[in-house]
């Protein structure tokens, strides 16, 4: 009996093989096996023989949509600003997409970073990805030598220990509270759609912080972001961060200093999260790749909550809807505006 993921892997390989061999796509973005237990590595298959290297398991935490705009661009002839767009059809790229990744592709399409006609989206309904950090904690930070994944369990082995974990217990927090595990756009769907999930308290982690006092919130922010090394893994793992020059690299004015001093680290995290407002799909890439375990996802989750509550919108759910910050409603809440306090809407 093969596991769910092994079956998905087989199908991914055969689809990628077909797409690459027929020349429908010039490259296919997926995952291949990694060199460590619990690791996979993003992989761009460019030849049909490469398709057999593709794998799928619960550790595919980095959002593959992250690679899409640059990979598409790499197949375009070079041009300067103002040059006309290249003529004729350009090569296509195939990509795997779970629910959140597909929503990020929608955002990229809406922001003109990706041409829908040049992408072949192979949808994979997500069962939730596992947090390697949680696994490490569950085994007491001991050195893990192998990890064998079954449908509902993980068998972790190291020198002198063997431990079986329930898979769902170590699934990432963002996946546990995800309500849209199925891809919203795709050309090919692998596996069965999981359907909308019912999640109570989707924003429980955010509520918990909101309920703290002002001082406690500041201390939480200061403590949990203090170990940041400013490596920008969170930014670079994010499919929304494609700016040619990031605000952290601006020097006149320099919005954020380069050191790891508290103010600069905090400003970086506030602005990074804020730039994702109305665009973030809570894919968890940022948090998963952080080498020091900073919970920066809670900032974007807070923004997601506000966008949903105030504007009734979630990022990337459809190609027809505008992104929430590229539109407005004359009746948008404005209780926070001093001159509007007395009116309806109240103080938020």
């Amino acid at each position: 009996m093969s596991t769910v993921n092994e079956k998905i892997t087989e199908k991914i390989r055969s689809e990628a093989q077909r797409l690459l061999s027929t020349g429908e796509v010039a490259a296919f973005i997926g995952y291949e096996a990694g060199s460590l237990p619990m690791s996979v590595r993003p992989f761009v298959a460019r030849k049909q023989e490469d398709a057999s290297r593709l794998v799928w398991n619960s550790f595919c935490v980095l959002n593959l949509a992250n690679y899409l705009p640059a990979l598409l661009k790499s197949f375009e002839p070079p041009r300067r600003p103002g040059d006309p767009p290249p003529e004729g059809p350009l090569p296509k790229v195939g990509i795997l997409a779970t629910g959140c990744w597909s929503r990020n592709i929608v955002v990229q399409i809406k922001e003109n970073q990706v041409d829908r006609d040049r992408v072949v989206i192979v949808g994979v309904p997500s069962r939730g990805m596992v947090s390697a950090r949680k696994v490490k904690e569950a085994v007491g930070e001991r050195d893990i030598q192998t990890c064998i994944e079954e449908d509902h369990s993980l068998k972790i082995c190291g020198e002198g220990f063997e431990q079986e974990l329930n898979r769902w217990d170590v699934v990432r927090d963002n996946c546990k509270t995800c309500v849209h595990p199925d891809p919203v756009i795709y050309d090919i769907l692998i596996g069965d759609p999981a359907g909308e999930r019912q999640v109570q308290d989707r924003f429980a982690q955010v509520d918990e912080i909101e309920h703290k006092s002002l001082e406690e919130r500041w201390n939480w922010f200061a403590d949990s972001f203090s170990s940041c090394v400013r490596c920008y893994a969170c930014r670079n793992a994010c499919p929304l961060c494609y700016c040619p020059t990031c605000f952290v690299d601006d020097s006149r004015p320099q919005w954020v200093g380069k050191s790891t001093e508290q103010t600069d680290t905090m400003l970086f995290h506030i602005l990074r999260a804020y730039h994702c407002a109305g665009r973030c799909t809570d894919c968890g890439s940022c948090e998963s790749v952080c080498p020091v375990g900073i919970p920066m996802r809670l900032l974007t989750k807070k923004l997601n909550k506000d966008v949903l509550e105030m504007y009734g919108s979630e990022a990337g759910m459809s190609l027809d809807e505008p992104l929430p910050l590229t539109t407005y409603n004359p009746a948008d809440p404005q209780g926070f505006v001093l001159t509007e306090k007395s009116e309806k809407g109240g103080d938020r």
Binding site: R41, P42, F43, V44, L62, N66, Y67, V229, R230, C231, Y232, A233, R235, N236, A237, V289, P291
Partner: peptide, 13 residues
């Protein structure tokens, strides 16, 4: 280069 995301985690650690 295909898979590197050009973050500084490796260099800073």
């Amino acid at each position: 280069a295909d898979r590197c995301i050009n973050c500084g985690a490796c260099t800073f650690l």
